[in-house]
Design a protein around this nucleic acid. Structure first.
Lengths: 152, 152
DNA sequence: ACTAAACTGTTGACATATCATCTATTGGTT
DNA sequence: AACCAATAGATGATATGTCAACAGTTTAGT
């Protein structure tokens, strides 16, 4: 079967991402965390608890409605809490709890270790080269998505 | 803040894959197809209708149980049909219908065109370089997944 | 100041995914 | 032949994701 290199690139990218996500599920499972929940912890940690659900959905690039249930479950687990957003009665300010911060620290350590494992067979030059190229394709994909969405 | 090049690589890979999947959702939507359903059509097309649900799940790297609902919906849409597997009363042989084959042809044309769009800013050398590196990381991720799954 | 538009979060319908568990078969060992 | 482990597919619980529609708030334009 003759395969166009561009098609191969797209297939390889999605395929590698799937493998990474499947492995990360195993990494996070001992902590009772999903990939999506780890991302929320990560983003909140980086942002110093200043985020509304809308900002979370923008950063994580998922629908607003998705954040509702995600934060519901994480709040029930006492890893985050919703507080009223000062000056806007529509919105919440989502904050890590001390438990959430502790969990992030542990899960992140395991995550960093796992990343070292999955990149051990790559040279620094390869890592940098791929890291430079992929965002170019990502931007094109995003532009295409917006264009097709607007054409509805 | 992400600074380690290896972490950046993983983030960029997953992020690019997400952008590709979101764009492909737009590409397939006019056909009433999801990404997962397109993949089923693609695999069946390549395999000349010789696949059981187990083989589909192995190729697509998803759980067996996932295939049940996927094929249920696609059979209801009359794109595929289940036939008894000769010599094994537990299994089915899943086949494309003429409608399914026609749909695959149209959706694939749109898909190929979309891929040309998202890779237009990359040089052939970049495309080949990334396509060579990503499978190495994918194999490491898969090995890690298996190792962690076995450790339960 | 008022109205219309835009925005935030929630809800419900649905698709996709995992996982554990079930039934029915198949196949290998003794 | 009889038994028992492995396999194929289905099912139900749960999580994540989209999308459309809604209520309540905020903001912009006149």
């Amino acid at each position: 079967m003759v395969t166009d290199p561009a098609i191969e690139l797209v297939v390889n990218t999605v395929s590698a991402s799937n493998a990474l996500l499947r492995a990360s599920r195993r990494v996070f499972r001992p902590f009772g965390l999903s990939e999506a929940q780890f991302n929320v912890l990560q983003v909140l940690q980086d942002a110093d608890d200043q985020l509304s659900q809308r900002e979370l959905s923008d950063i994580l690039i998922v629908d607003r409605s998705n954040i509702t249930g995600l934060i519901d479950r994480m709040e029930k687990a006492a890893w985050v809490k919703r507080q009223p957003a000062p000056g806007d009665r529509r919105a919440y300010r989502v904050a890590l709890t001390p438990d959430g911060r502790r969990l992030w620290r542990q899960a992140n350590a395991a995550y960093v270790q796992a990343i070292a494992r999955v990149t051990v067979n790559l040279t620094p030059a390869q890592i940098k080269a791929v890291s430079r190229v992929l965002p170019v394709m990502e931007r094109s994909a995003h532009a295409l998505e917006l264009e097709l969405a607007a054409a509805e």
